[in-house]
Design a protein around this nucleic acid. Structure first.
Lengths: 204, 204
DNA sequence: AGATGTTTTAAACATTTGTTTAATTAAATT
DNA sequence: AATTTAATTAAACAAATGTTTAAAACATCT
């Protein structure tokens, strides 16, 4: 019996299509037939390769979240950087990523709201942040009186200011206030601005 | 011929159920049967009162968006208040509203991403903001050099910092970092903090 | 080439789901 | 009270949708 040899190209094409459609339309609105036709591949092969729509979704989800945290982990645990430097790197990395995949935030947020625990599992119940060097630095800042509020606000504000514009992007574009390039220009400028604003907020 | 007299109670119960389920699960994941059983009312009555699932959704959507902008309009056009006072009022109003209906942001954001133009229609293509007294004040601030960035960043940051925590709420709660009351405590504190932070960002 | 295992295809299946129908009950009007 | 109109119900329908089946095409190995 030979080792199962599958055509990577087909499986990968389907995964790529699934990623695209799931991300764009969400789980419920995505039909298996959408994925198949997006990949231009026979309907049955979706089940052949991934057993079920749900299994395929979970696979995509896990990979997406993995990719989301792989880069952030070393940044928030780097003991050689200051709080502001960490924020600079986080902001830079995520804005770059989101320019490439602007639909990602809704995908994640939907997953969060729909009650799945994938994200929590992958962040070790949020302890990835709570136990990070970054968190320790923030608590130190609080103790020396630089910040008079819960350190969680720092993370909230940073992620908010990075991610939210992408959630509003379709609205902004369709309103005509900015075009696609104008939007990218603004968010790229925010790469520099957000760390400065955050430094101000923390009295640094 | 008498004026159609319908049992308000039934229609209203269905609308309330629809609002709840649509908001919680989104359009595609909501089944007409979910709405009927949430309202504990016969399935057929959904079509009897609202013609179709889509019509019902549009009705809920329009009402929601209406409610969303009714309050903000006078605030951003009040010529007697400063930029910071306006931000204080916006932040206070929306955080209060979101504490009552924490699922609202996802509902809106989904609607935005799914390509509907309801929101744009209701904001007169975003001109509600662009032509507001608030926008004029921000442009003045830019001209006198207080802010060296596109004024749209002010609105982006304010809304981001107000709304985003509610999008992350399920994750935060399930992570155990905060409980339901702890979350409310934090966002209530942010009512005071966000205007201060924004003032800092604008060098006010 | 023939045998064996893998991938692809078209068709069919069983559920789910939005909507309609036709009959019944309740309310309003004359 | 009789008649008309509105509201409610259970059943049925048709289309959509996730999944399976069985046969064909393709590849690999002896």
């Amino acid at each position: 019996m030979t080792k199962t040899k599958i055509d990577i190209s087909t499986e990968e094409k389907l995964k790529e299509a699934a990623r695209a459609v799931f991300t764009r339309k969400g789980y419920a609105a995505t039909k298996v037939r959408d994925i198949a036709s997006e990949a231009d591949i026979n309907l049955s092969l979706v089940n052949y390769y991934f057993r079920s729509k749900e299994k395929l979704f979970e696979l995509i989800m896990a990979e997406t979240i993995q990719k989301l945290f792989d880069k952030i982990k070393p940044i928030i645990n780097d003991e050689s950087t200051t709080v502001t430097e960490k924020i600079e790197r986080i902001v830079d990395h995520y804005i770059s990523m989101l320019i490439e995949t602007p639909d990602l935030p809704l995908f994640i947020v939907n997953e969060v709201m729909s009650g799945s625990n994938k994200l929590l599992q992958m962040t070790n119940n949020g302890k990835l942040f709570l136990n990070s060097h970054f968190a320790k630095q923030l608590m130190a800042l609080q103790e020396e009186g630089k910040i008079q509020f819960h350190p969680v606000n720092v993370m909230m504000n940073t992620i908010s200011m990075v991610v939210f514009p992408f959630l509003m992007r379709p609205l902004i574009l369709r309103s005509g206030a900015l075009d696609s390039e104008g939007f990218i220009k603004i968010v790229k400028e925010r790469k520099k601005l957000i760390p400065v604003w955050m430094a101000g907020i923390m009295n640094l």
